[in-house]
Amino acid sequence: MSPVRKASALLLAAALPLALAGCGGASGGGAAGGGTTVSVFAAASLKAPFTQLAEQFEADNPGTTVTLSFAGSSDLATQISQGAPADVFASADTKNMAKLGDAGLVEGSPRAFATNVLTIVVPPANPASIGSFADLANPGVKTVICAAQVPCGAAAKTLEQGTGTTLQPVSEESSVTDVLGKVVSGEADAGLVYVTDAKAAGDKVREIRFPEAAEAVNTYPIAAVRTSKNKDAAAAFIAAVTGSEGQQVLRGAGFGTP
């Protein structure tokens, strides 16, 4: 194994020097143009509020640029552990943050800055007449949820156990976006997504709130990355997110307060 890796490393170094140089350049971060750059890796569900927060942060801190990278939390965690140049990591679950913490890549202890709960979304006409969480298990209802391997699916599983309802989903997607897409397109009768996703989807879906949702609350942690070269700016951005202004923006997007 290790000879193979050594050989691959050698070949990589020999064949793709330009690509490597490109990566190295980006990880330098910081000093381009005299200003400071903060690279924020954030869970996909944070796209709207974090984009707004980043603009506000840049306005409050002249000379500082925020670059945002949105993806699934586990993707981001994998990228950071592979050496991607992140200064701040905002995860949609504690598990992926813990993964990075175990690898010694988290600076200090992560701070919870938002919560999210599941909600039911149905097509605007609500063809399967869904009114409660238990209705999702009705025969003939095409329900789409996240697979248990991803955070939104784990939350769904918790709800199933808590309510004693067994869902027979027609599909277990790898991301909330895919669940939402199936409902928006009318393929599915109902889907379980985060309230923030339902809010972002606007009137393309109808949201059916259900009280049991409070039994599975997802907590979003944020932390600076140990390998960051802009620790001060990273700390400032985290402060902005956890501060009152940041919390207001997050609540506006449908997130709860931890």
Partner: peptide, 11 residues
Amino acid sequence: LTFAGSLQGVT
């Protein structure tokens, strides 16, 4: 992924 969904043993 876009068209068929993802369910063990089916899609």
